[in-house]
């Protein structure tokens, strides 16, 4: 299998920042990987960071058996509606949220283990025309859905045993929400990006819509990945799946913008562009702390340090095919890379 692994390419002299192959999940039954994620799972008093893989009609939980070996713990079989994505619930244990649907999300389900009757279960959380969803701290989930002309933005919270509690409604903006991000440093603030390229801010406690700020026309359909408040400014990490290449910024994958929420004025802080001379566009990606990773249309995975605005590692497509997915691990700085054929590799950054 060693020949199958891609060899990471380093782009600078930061010797300690490396992308090292750790292990591979082998799933002979899986035909395609829809999504991959990590989850803390506790069984028999042992709490471990496990890997979750999603195919169109099933979701599997994998636990570490040995340094290079993973064993499948359980597979939830889903119905006829295909799985679209795994929705990580931060700081939770034994709870996995998934989104199902055709093109758009039509259903959100919770997968869990019930110690009461020693069985793995699944339960329905929400149905509708769901446009965006994000797992929040404290076992909560925010989603936006459209019914006729109305947009509904709702926060649902779960108990430790996975029971969903009464949801809270947030005041919806006129524009369709495409993505959410919690605001680090401000406990009750939630941010969203809209189809009209605006940023909206809510107060999660009161449900108030506090502000709408326009991002600008240069980078349409921006998606928010992370937001934090510092020194009175709101810093937002955005990706730009539809950005055009420019001479000054190259082909930008991620951008950090500083907003003054009081005046709605903003300024670009740093660009993270595709490596020089590397063809391809940003396809999909994820941000964790100051690290961003994305799958490029060339089939490679690129990693950026957002503080430097520089690509620090590149994982070219291997002999087994192009990369289709990239996710950061919940613990440490692990990177999960998924191929279209269902193969998932773990790397250490």
């Amino acid at each position: 299998n060693e020949a199958e692994q891609s060899t990471p390419v380093l782009f600078d002299d930061l010797a300690e920042e490396n992308l090292q192959f750790v292990s591979k999940l082998k799933d002979s039954s899986s035909s395609c990987a829809v999504d991959v994620s990590t989850v803390w799972w506790e069984a028999a008093g042992c709490r471990e960071l496990c890997v979750v893989t999603a195919c169109e009609n099933s979701v599997s939980l994998w636990k570490p058996l040995a340094p290079d070996h993973w064993g499948k713990v359980y597979t939830w079989q889903l119905g006829e509606i295909p799985v679209i994505q795994i929705i990580p619930l931060l700081d939770t244990c034994n709870l996995i949220c998934i989104a199902l649907g055709n093109l758009e999300i039509g259903e959100i389900r919770l997968l869990l283990y019930s110690s009461e009757n020693d069985s793995f279960k699944q339960s329905l959380v929400k149905t509708g025309n769901i446009k965006a969803v994000l797992g929040l701290k404290d076992r909560r989930l925010v989603s936006s859905s459209r019914s006729m002309q109305e947009q509904e933005v709702e926060v649902v919270s779960f108990s430790e045993t996975g029971r969903s509690k009464h949801g809270q409604t947030l005041m919806p903006p006129e524009e369709t929400i495409l993505a959410f991000a919690e605001v680090e440093g401000v406990k009750d603030a939630l941010l969203g990006t809209t189809a009209m390229n605006s940023i909206v801010i809510w107060n999660l406690k009161t449900g108030q819509l506090l502000k709408k700020m326009h991002i600008g026309y240069s980078y349409p359909a921006s998606i928010c990945h992370r937001a934090y408040s510092d020194s009175g400014l709101l810093f937002v990490v955005l990706s730009h799946p539809h950005a055009k290449e420019s001479e000054s910024c190259g082909n930008p994958a991620f951008r950090v913008i500083a907003f003054n929420p009081k005046t709605a004025r903003s300024t670009g802080v740093i660009f993270s562009s595709l490596p020089p001379g590397h063809a391809g566009r940003y396809m999909e990606g994820e941000v964790k702390d100051a690290l961003a990773a994305a799958v490029l249309s060339s089939g490679a995975i690129a990693v950026w340090d957002l503080l430097l605005g520089r690509c620090t590692a590149l994982l070219p497509p291997g002999p087994a095919g192009s990369w289709a997915l990239v996710r950061w691990s919940a613990g440490g700085s692990g990177l999960l890379a998924g191929r279209g054929d269902g193969g998932v590799c773990l790397y250490r950054y």
Binding site: V186, D188, A189, I201, N203, T206, Q208, L209, L210, K211, S229, S231, G232, L233, L234, A258, F259, N260, P261, K262, T263, R265, S266, T267, V269
Partner: peptide, 23 residues
Amino acid sequence: CSDSDLGPISLNWFEELSSEAPP
């Protein structure tokens, strides 16, 4: 970025916007 680019900055922007926004 300077204050003049972004306008007056408030460390309590969240509380201030919450008190100004409709309930």
